[in-house]
């Protein structure tokens, strides 16, 4: 899934977002000096290859009243983890769910980010996930963030 120099310029020009104007792709194309049709074809190809996961908006959970955010973690039977991960990820209050390896002293292989307007609400939602997982889940926990220690955006190499 390699990208060439022009793709790299497309990424750099759109990383901060699309301009809110009637022809956003024409504007980006002008900015990087290619024509609009090529830009759209390249973006469509990157979407097809998975380099672009989606073109979309990201809501601000906090602004939307979801001020309690917990990282719930689950020890789910391996054979069912993928199917259950999909179901958990589809819950409306879960923004993402992931499968990750277990570690020593850490039995959890499924992570789900749960959002709610209070911790009580997050706990109720966590109970819903537990019910959904049923006996396939052996243990679970939830970790709330108490402080942001560092936050920087994704840096793309070759961009100075």
């Amino acid at each position: 899934m390699s990208i060439d120099d022009i793709d790299r310029r497309v990424i750099a020009a759109t990383q901060a977002g699309l301009p809110l104007c009637p022809r956003p792709y024409a504007q980006i194309a002008r900015q990087i000096g290619i024509d609009e049709a090529e830009l759209r074809a390249r973006m469509a190809a990157m979407l097809e290859r998975g380099v672009i996961r989606r073109i979309a908006l990201a809501p601000n959970h906090y602004a939307l009243g979801m001020v309690a955010n917990g990282m719930s973690v689950w020890d789910v039977e391996d054979a069912q983890a993928e199917a259950l991960g999909e179901k958990v990820g589809a819950l409306e209050f879960v923004s993402h769910s992931y499968l990750r390896p277990r570690a020593e002293g850490w039995p959890y292989n499924m992570f789900a980010m749960v959002h709610g307007s209070s911790r009580e609400e997050v706990e109720r939602k966590r109970a819903e996930i537990a019910a959904l997982l049923g006996p396939a889940c052996r243990a679970s926990d939830i970790l709330y963030s108490t402080r942001i220690l560092k936050k920087t955006g994704l840096r793309l190499r070759g961009e100075g």
């Binding site: 977002g17 996961r53 073109i55 908006l57 990201a58 602004a63």
Partner: peptide, 9 residues
């Protein structure tokens, strides 16, 4: 209300 609008890489 929105933190980002555009392609997610």
């Amino acid at each position: 209300a929105i933190t980002r609008f555009g392609p997610f890489f």
